[in-house]
Amino acid sequence: MAEAILNVLGKDRFKAFSAGSSPSGHVQPMAKELAEAIGYDTSQVRSKNWDEFAAEGAPEMDIVITVCDNAAGEACPIWLGHPALAHWGVADPVAATGDEAARRHAYTAAFATLRRRVELLLSLPLESLDRLAAQTKLREIGKVEAG
C-alpha cells in the first residue's frame, strides 16, 4: 500500500517499491482495491522479496522504510548506496481477524496511517537534508498516526 500511495502522491519526486522479508506470493485483494481507489495502476503489482532490491543491478535506494510491526526487529539486507533508513510500524492488516468488515477496517486504518506519513514525507525538503538529517525526520514521521 505504501508503494501505491508514494507513487501516486509523489509521482514527480519518487519511484517507490514494495517488498517484504517473507512475501506471501500474492497481492492482498483489499490492499489492491485501496491502491486502485487512489488511481494506482495495479496491473504490474506483485509480491516481492526484499532481497530482490539488494541484488546486483537493483535500483539504488535513497530511502528504505520498513512498515510492518514485525519488520523492525528483522535483519534487513545491506542496501546499496547507504540509504536513509526508518521504521514506520503499522499493524499488518493481513493479521486482522473477524468478518470482512473488520478486516476491511484494518486495511483502511493501515492505509490512512501510511497516507498521512507519506504526505509528511512529501513535505520534507529532502534535497536540502543530508542522509542523517533525512533519516531523523523519517523516523519522526514513523510516530505519526492518521488524524
Score class of each variant (00 low, 15 high):
79 W>S: 02
58 A>S: 14
72 A>M: 12
101 A>P: 00
53 F>C: 02
1 M>K: 09
136 T>D: 15
123 S>F: 00
30 M>C: 05
7 N>H: 07
46 R>P: 00
66 T>A: 11
7 N>A: 07
40 Y>S: 09
141 I>V: 08
43 S>K: 13
11 K>W: 09
101 A>Y: 00
22 S>E: 14
98 G>S: 06
117 R>H: 04
20 G>P: 04
29 P>Y: 05
132 L>I: 15
31 A>D: 12
78 I>S: 15
96 A>I: 08
27 V>Y: 04
69 D>T: 14
49 N>G: 07
117 R>P: 01
106 A>D: 02
23 P>C: 11
34 L>C: 06
141 I>W: 01
39 G>I: 07
121 L>R: 00
109 A>L: 10
66 T>L: 01
12 D>N: 14
141 I>N: 03
20 G>T: 03
89 G>R: 06
24 S>P: 00
146 A>G: 04
79 W>H: 07
80 L>G: 02
66 T>I: 02
90 V>W: 02
25 G>E: 10
51 D>P: 02
140 E>H: 05
65 I>K: 01
26 H>I: 06
34 L>N: 08
23 P>K: 10
84 A>D: 04
41 D>T: 08
19 A>S: 12
142 G>T: 06
107 Y>D: 10
126 L>E: 03
8 V>L: 06
134 A>P: 02
8 V>R: 14
135 Q>H: 08
84 A>C: 10
69 D>G: 14
19 A>L: 03
127 E>L: 13
71 A>P: 04
12 D>I: 05
37 A>T: 08
147 G>R: 13
16 A>Q: 12
29 P>K: 08
147 G>C: 07
122 L>A: 06
80 L>D: 04
54 A>V: 05
143 K>M: 08
62 D>Y: 08
9 L>I: 06
140 E>V: 01
92 D>I: 03
44 Q>D: 03
139 R>M: 07
142 G>D: 04
47 S>E: 03
105 H>L: 13
70 N>V: 07
6 L>M: 14
143 K>I: 00
102 A>M: 09
41 D>W: 06
140 E>I: 02
141 I>S: 05
12 D>F: 05
48 K>W: 00
2 A>V: 15
81 G>C: 11
134 A>F: 02
31 A>G: 15
47 S>H: 05
16 A>C: 11
67 V>M: 14
132 L>T: 14
99 D>T: 07
120 L>F: 04
141 I>Q: 01
39 G>R: 03
135 Q>C: 12
69 D>R: 08
22 S>P: 00
28 Q>I: 09
119 E>T: 08
132 L>V: 15
23 P>V: 11
